[in-house]
Structure formats: C-alpha cells, structure tokens
Computed example of a mutant assay.
Amino acid sequence: MSFLRRLFRRERREVVAFIDIGARRVVGAYVYYVGNSVPIVVYTKVVAIRVQTGEEHSVTMLGALTELCSAMETEGIPTVLRGVGRRGVDSTLISIDAPWQETAIHHVHVVKEKPFLFTAELVAEAVAGVSAPQPGRVFTDASVIGTVLNGYSMRAPYGKRVRRATTVVLTSSLDEKLSQDILDVVGKMTVAKQPALIAGTSLRYQALRVVFAHETEALILDATGPLPEVALVRNGLLAAVSETPESLGGETGVTSDDFMRAFAEIAKQYPLPRTIFLLARFDQMDDMQKKLSAVAFGAFWLSENPPRIIPLLTSNMTGLVKQMTTNPPDLPLLLMALYYRYLDKQ
C-alpha cells in the first residue's frame, strides 16, 4: 500500500450491541469502536429480573430481556445517533452467566514422535472432538482459550513445529429451547446483526488477560451476581471453573459461605494460588471485600496468611475503555467492551 493510501485510508468504525444475561438482571450497552482507539461506551441500560411467585425464572428473565431490547431500540439508538452519528449496529454479542449456562473445560492433547506443524486445522479438529452436550442442551460457546506447545503457553501458536500440543477448549451449554428463545427475543430488534452467544466466564477470563497479562497463577472470583463463580488460572490458562447452583443462591445476596463453597470445589482438584481477582459491581465492592476477608482460608493453605486480593476497579480500566454515558460504570459491560476490542489479538 502506498504512503498516500495509508495516509487517507479510513479507519474501521463500528457500533456493537452488548447484552449480559445474569441471574437477577439483564444489562445492555452500545459501544463505539474506531480503529485501534479506546472503545467508547455510548449507552447502557439495566433491567432487573423480578421473579414472581409461581412463575418460572426463565420466563421472567425473557420478559426482562424483552424490556431491555425495547429500550435499546427506542432509547439507545437515538442516543448513539446523537453521540457518534451512527444509525445502525454492526455486531451483537450476548454473554450468558449462571444459572442459565453450564461451563466445562477440555484439554485436547496431540503427541507425536516426529515434529509436526501446528495449524488452525488441528485446533478446529480439537474443538470438533469435544463431547456433545447432554440431550436437550446445545453448545452456545466453544472457545479456544489457550494452547500449550512443548510445555509452553503460546498466544501465537500457528506455524510452529512441535512434538506435543495441548489445546484448551471452554464449552458452554444452554437449554436448547431457552437458547432459541433468547436469540428470538434479541433477533426482533431491527438493529440486531447476527447475535452471537458466549459464556460470561470465558469472556471475562479473556478480558482479564489483557488487564493483568503478567498474572499467570490466580483465582478469579466473579461476584457480580448472586451466584458466585470461581475460575482457576494456572500457567496463564483457564484450568477449572466452579459455578454455584441456583438452588444455593440466596435472595439476600452473596455470603462468605458461598465463597467458601466455590473455593472448596476448585481445591478438590488443584492446589489454590494465593492471588484472587475479585469481580463485583462497583457499588458493592467494599461489601464483597469484607465478606471475602471473612473466609477461613486456612482450610486451603498450610499458612494462615491471607491471600493477595486484587479488586477490579474502574482505575484498572483507565485507558482501556471510555464512558460517554452518565450512568454508573458496569463491570460486566466494560469487560465485554474490552474483550471485543482485543478479540482478534488473543
């Protein structure tokens, strides 16, 4: 490309619709991207899931999702037009959290005596070889979240000759009918473009790799909803996930016992690292830190010394995501915006 063509080439501009579906609320946003610039959150909306007596949780959730999508069209699109001069949406990404989805991590190994070329085709075979979900459920996400070549984690693995390769695949399954219902509701938005589903656990792990790239041994405690999830990162790769069943989620919010149960599930399989990333809504962070400090960590480590707790704050996101809207920052949405920005660079 000539110098003049590079000089006058227009940067790619797009508006992406994000929706996060949790246990007690659904949230949506429009985020504006210009080339490699910092993404701008233009509009956000939160709708609570208020379960009524005798009504199925999923029915209430779909009602809240319908309300959210309506607001994103009637309020959000005019806001985007006024803010950045764009009329449409280029992509739609839907993040699904517990209790709607179930997450599993698979390690697919290839070992040969002679060196072989690691290619995208081998990764595709690894994903295709993952066991099918249980009857009545569908995979909403099958993400390759890491590769290990000859014992070393690689972010750019293709084209290398190796003898041992491990592909780490995260799958998320969802009730088949509910999956279709979600896509139907979002698909009725006239601005929605090819809505795609992803597991919230996978998305937030990949976003945190950008914010804390140097942290390779850690626990990620997601307390953004009433059902805490714990993910274990070993050697920079997601190794295990513990999700709290909906039957154990209390109406009064997360407790120290909830944290204890989640850590104990991971500890059954792996030794726990002493670094914990705490994800919580910004207005609840202080309360969550107090509850986390009350956990009896001596049950997991020989030492009584407390672990290093790193709360994810708005200050951690400075320079990574900007906010145009006057609504309070929402952590799941900020991480979605960050994930999409680096989607092609993982």
Rank of each mutant, 00 (worst) to 15 (best):
E113W: 00
S173E: 13
S179N: 07
G151F: 02
R161K: 11
R155T: 15
V123I: 13
M154N: 09
F118N: 05
F118M: 01
S153Q: 14
T140A: 09
V127C: 10
R163F: 00
E113L: 04
F118R: 06
K160P: 00
Q180A: 13
G146F: 06
A104K: 15
I105M: 04
G76C: 07
T92R: 07
F118Q: 03
T103E: 08
Y158I: 13
V108N: 11
H109N: 10
A142N: 10
A128L: 10
A124V: 01
Y152I: 13
K114F: 02
S179Y: 01
R86I: 15
R163H: 04
N150R: 01
A156I: 09
V162M: 05
A132T: 13
G129C: 02
D181H: 08
G88K: 12
M154S: 14
H106P: 06
V89K: 11
Y152Q: 14
V89H: 09
F116V: 02
H109W: 06
A132L: 11
W100P: 01
V127H: 10
T79C: 11
E121F: 06
V144T: 15
T79D: 09
E121A: 15
Y152L: 13
T166G: 03
V110K: 14
E73R: 14
R164Q: 13
G76S: 10
R155E: 13
R137N: 11
S173H: 08
E121I: 11
I94E: 00
I182Q: 07
R86H: 13
W100Y: 11
E73G: 12
T171L: 02
T79F: 03
A165R: 00
I77G: 06
S131Q: 13
V123F: 03
A156V: 12
V89M: 11
I96P: 03
R82Y: 04
R86F: 08
S131A: 15
F139S: 09
V111G: 02
L149W: 02
V127G: 10
L170D: 01
V138I: 14
R164S: 12
T140Y: 04
V127R: 13
T166N: 06
A126P: 05
G88E: 12
V168E: 10
Q180D: 09
S172I: 04
Y152W: 09
D175V: 12
V111T: 14
V108P: 04
F139H: 14
M154E: 15
K112Q: 14
E121K: 14
V138D: 11
F116Y: 10
S173A: 12
S173T: 13
V169S: 00
L117A: 08
S179H: 07
V127S: 12
Y152K: 14
